[in-house]
């Protein structure tokens, strides 16, 4: 399928890059990316992926837009307070780029639906905020052999890593098990600078674009950390030994998904 004149103009800054070109742009237009969480990380990622012309973008989130979200969840607007986040995000993505087909999943992602949900996508972005969800996304991606970008943000810090099946450690290789609820502070308890989602969520979008187009090196086998106070990035080489991992190792003990009892963020609590 040839690009239209409008598409050649829209994506001209990609097409002029020798690493991307028309070929890479077509890969983006044919790609399917799922973003789990239309929040601090998912918002900038969704905006950049839509603008980049990723042909199909799935977005999953059960929440509605809340006033306290707008400090960092830049895909949503004041006018959309009370609206489903996935609908608000779809509106914004379609407004940026009519080339993009947006699939919305206004649902709690859990062990019963996640494998089916991720199956039709090429790359998954973890934009969740709690550790049970992060482990769930990891384990499901390992089981379905899907590449994904993990990220976390808190206060003035952020981090991300990329899992590609067979090419390096998964999230569980590094972090083993979710910490007990409230043992580790969450954004709601500890705060986060809104722009942190922009920094790290945009890096996740970059990982997706690089994976799809095959350009350069991904953060497989690395954890990239960002400290806004020191204004420093630090790229940590992760141990390459994945043999003993409970989910991606040689003799996995986790062969079915589990919903850990309690998320670290209390959802029912009023902001």
């Amino acid at each position: 399928m040839a690009l239209t004149d409008k598409q050649i103009e829209r994506y001209s800054r990609h097409i002029i890059l020798k690493e991307i070109g028309v070929k890479g742009q077509k890969k983006l237009l044919n790609a399917k990316v799922l973003i789990i969480g239309a929040g601090g990380l998912g918002s900038p990622a969704a905006l950049y992926l839509a603008a980049a012309g990723v042909g199909t973008i799935g977005i999953a989130d059960a929440d509605v837009v809340d006033l306290s979200n707008l400090q960092r969840q830049v895909i949503h607007t004041t006018a959309n307070i009370g609206k489903a986040k996935v609908e608000s995000a779809k509106e914004a993505m379609e407004a940026i780029n009519p080339d993009v087909k947006v699939n919305v999943y206004q649902t709690f992602v859990d062990s019963t639906n996640i494998r089916e949900l991720i199956r039709e996508y090429d790359f998954i972005l973890d934009g969740t905020d709690n550790f049970p969800a992060k482990f769930l996304v990891n384990d499901a991606c390992v089981m379905e052999k899907k590449p994904f970008s993990h990220a976390g943000i808190i206060r003035f810090k952020g981090q991300l890593m990329t899992y590609v099946p067979g090419q390096g450690p998964c999230y569980r290789c590094v972090f083993k098990n979710p910490p007990p609820a409230d043992a580790v502070p969450t954004c709601k308890q500890a705060g986060v600078v809104g722009a942190m989602g922009g920094v790290i969520g945009s890096l996740q979008a970059m990982e997706a674009i690089k994976y799809i187009t095959g350009v350069g090196e991904l953060l497989t086998g690395y954890l990239l950390t960002y400290d806004a106070i020191k204004q420093e990035f630090h790229k940590v080489k992760l141990p390459s030994n994945t043999h003993s991992c409970a989910v991606c190792g040689d003799n996995p003990t986790i062969t079915e998904l589990v919903d850990y009892a309690q998320p670290t963020c209390e959802l029912k609590q009023k902001h």
């Binding site: 601090g40 989130d61 709690f108 992602v109 859990d110 049970p132 976390g152 998320p263």
Partner: peptide
């Protein structure tokens, strides 16, 4: 030596 920390963040419309 590297210390690797748990970091949450993102959106909390997941898991009941």
């Amino acid at each position: 030596v590297e210390f690797l920390y748990f970091m949450g963040g993102g959106s909390h419309g997941f898991n009941r």
